[in-house]
Design a protein around this nucleic acid. Structure first.
Lengths: 248, 248
DNA sequence: TCAAAAGTGTTGGCCCTACACCCATGC
DNA sequence: GCATGGGTGTAGGGCCAACACTTTTGA
């Protein structure tokens, strides 16, 4: 059984180079075809879907590890990446790797740091690694059953993302450089899972003062050509740092 | 040297019962004398202040560990306790325990999960443990120098707390059961580090609809007696769950 | 009776909602 | 020219800051 061998051979090396009992799981969001997508991989043999993840080198910072793991999967660098929660319940991996020896790396208790990432769908090249036989984008409303507690990691990431909409700008990492207001609105609506009023969204977005209107419009639709915008990077970064609507 | 012995003797036991390389640090906030306070302990011999913390038993959930650690320190149970970030940089403990053997528990690399807690100052009984010779409340603007990266853990906790004010109710765990509006306002002002308008605070708080006005007032001041309030626990919990001002 | 704190009223401005109305485009 | 989607106008309400006024209390 090739998979079993892979795990067993990887085990020794893992014990050597990684922090034990510590893992990273990433919820990678992308936006495509008017849908919010999440990156999932399928484990060989097990035929089980999982969030992309990995371990932290003994000589590596946590954030660097998350970036490395994502780069291996997607080729993308300088991704918007944020830790949002630790998942460390005792029973989170119950029933997995039962067929292996207790000393096997993968069978240990793992405390996993959840990161979520926002990436430009068009810039990503998915990579299948040794332990997986598939790596795909799935719409957030068509996510297959996920292994262990990965479903709840995903849920928590989505909730966090939704909350972020209230006080942080979003879109720079999910949309192409140039985009229209209706496209941006669509992104918001899909993240939130509900319709927003067009005119009000339009003005609210402009009031945030993070957009630059371009002298072009998106031709090709059957109707009036919408104006193109891009983000004012500096103001966007400022808003990311300082928040948008903060009360008090 | 007694301290050294303590550490060395504790080491073996720690390796046995705790998850290696994983720690918990708690930023415990209390409110007293019109000041926001934080719990700090002083390590024996080292004469260095630190945030209260501990480790996670191999048989224990993360949140249970945090609760246990806090209960040992404060005697308080059912504390408002929330993880807010992981601190896992390579160099975070650089220079500590240098005089010990490399195999000693305390000298390892630790990834620390930061929790912050809100507790009723009056209900807490501070406990000095084996490794510390002091455990005290310090005002947030008079915090002594803290060991390792504990200062930045504290900073991040305070920032998180301030952000929470924008979308979560606060006070249930920091104030006594009955309190006045000016007292609640004082709490907000101290957390935020700035003055708020009295009338507007008053009405905004009432609009949140989480307060119950009592038929009593706080006698004794030299001036008009302020009305007493308490939190409507059910509505408070609802607001905690659903947020207060959420946009979109 | 007076100072100071606590409760309440008032005003103008901004944002939000909702809906309506134009404008542009491809058929 | 017509349907449709995109940009803009507008009326009403709520929240907000700022400030003023009134009430209550102990000295």
């Amino acid at each position: 059984m090739e998979f079993k061998k892979l795990i067993e051979e990887g085990s020794n090396r893992s014990w050597e180079i990684y922090m034990p009992h510590l893992s990273i799981d990433c919820v990678v969001f992308g936006f495509h075809d008017a849908a919010l997508k999440v990156l999932v991989t399928r484990m060989k043999e097990k035929n089980l879907w999982a969030l992309p993840g990995g371990y932290v080198l003994k000589t590596e910072n946590i954030n660097d590890a998350a970036n490395r793991i994502l780069k291996q999967r997607t080729g993308a660098e300088n991704i918007y990446l944020q830790q949002f929660r630790v998942f460390g319940d005792l029973n989170r991996s119950e029933g997995f790797f039962e067929e292996f020896d207790d000393t096997i790396w993968n069978k240990q208790r793992f405390i996993s740091i959840g990161f979520y990432a926002l990436v430009d769908y068009s810039l990503v090249n998915l990579v299948v690694d040794n332990f997986s036989d598939a790596c795909e984008w799935k719409s957030i409303d068509e996510i297959p059953q996920l292994m262990m507690d990965h479903k709840s990691i995903f849920d928590k990431a989505l909730i966090t993302l939704r909350k972020q909409l209230n006080y942080k700008p979003i879109g720079l990492n999910l949309l192409p450089e140039k985009f229209t207001m209706p496209e941006l609105q669509k992104l918001y609506e899909i993240i939130l899972g509900k319709k927003l009023n067009r005119g009000n969204f339009f003005r609210k977005m402009l009031r945030y003062d993070i957009l630059l209107k371009l002298d072009e419009s998106r031709k090709g639709g059957a109707h009036r050509s919408p104006d193109l915008y891009k983000f004012d990077i500096e103001k966007y970064q400022m808003a990311l740092k300082n928040g948008l609507n903060e009360g008090w």
